[in-house]
Design a protein around this nucleic acid. Structure first.
Lengths: 157, 157
DNA sequence: TATTGTTATACTCTATAACTATA
DNA sequence: TATAGTTATAGAGTATAACAATA
């Protein structure tokens, strides 16, 4: 199944010209992001966490009491699609919906005690993941250079 | 619908703590990639091209006569999912399947005359898109720095 | 009337299994 | 047996419309 095997087997492998895509910002960004995603998904598979679940728990931990709408907006997720994430976190006992007394349409989210402990474990795994990505980049100096470039790009109009 | 309007309307906007995500390589890479994708999709919407269609035409143009399997592999697409793209390009008169005479299982792909002209137009639009991305980064020097970092990251194990 | 949370639904992208025709 | 192209299908992720409860 490896490409090495394929080359040995077929023997008629063609050198493919990728030159333009090789120098395209968007294409290389996409490949790099896919690589990080793959490591992320592998890292959190044992904890049964997808990227959106991770970000949700992290935001809840740093910003207790946000409304559902605020959380969804902050995460760039549609309110409708956030419902399943909230249900899952609640059913696992990691987060709770608290109905507002003053405006009964509103629900504010809080981590449970178990949720806090879970986030602590989760962040340990995340730090290892991040360390692998920084190492792949070449080190903290390169990480900083990359973040400067990406932030400038994101800040522009 | 803009966030400005929302702030004015609700008045109770909360400052959300994003500090960890702000410094996470994967998160910033994802945001940057989404920004490039959004510009890409907008750029090629009038030509009715999705990212995979663009890459397919580009590879066909630079590597005439590739087998379907080689194209799919080079693009990182499942063979099964490549069929619809090939059908679409053929129905639009941009590409053609040529059945091999020596091995009748194999089809090699070639752009038509119309396809060649279309790719020329497509690449003009792409160069404008790329120029916008490079400008957002700060210029060609920053683009080069970014590509060096991304390539190192992709080369690592 | 407008907003919050919710349900239902649809569309894209991606992945897998299985078929056919060839080798 | 194995491979190339194909079909069918299922699972994510994401987007929109519409509803009930509430303001």
């Amino acid at each position: 199944m490896s490409s090495k095997t394929d080359i040995a087997k077929t023997g008629n492998r063609v050198r493919i010209d990728y030159s333009i895509l090789d120098n395209a910002v968007g294409y290389q960004l996409r490949l790099a992001q896919l690589k990080v995603f793959a490591d992320f998904i592998e890292t959190f598979e044992p904890m049964q966490l997808r990227p959106a679940d991770f970000s949700t728990l992290l935001l809840m931990s740093r910003n207790p009491g946000l409304k559902m709408r605020e959380l969804a907006e902050a995460l760039g997720i549609q309110r409708a699609n956030f419902v399943a994430i909230a249900d899952m976190l609640e059913s696992r006992g990691l987060a709770e919906r608290h109905k507002s007394e003053t405006d009964r349409r509103i629900q504010r989210f809080f981590l449970t005690k178990d949720g806090e402990a879970f986030v602590a474990t989760m962040m340990k795994a995340w730090e290892e993941h991040e360390a692998r990505m920084v190492a792949a980049l070449g080190g903290p100096a390169e990480r900083d250079k990359l973040l400067v470039l990406l932030r400038r790009m994101l800040a522009t109009s």
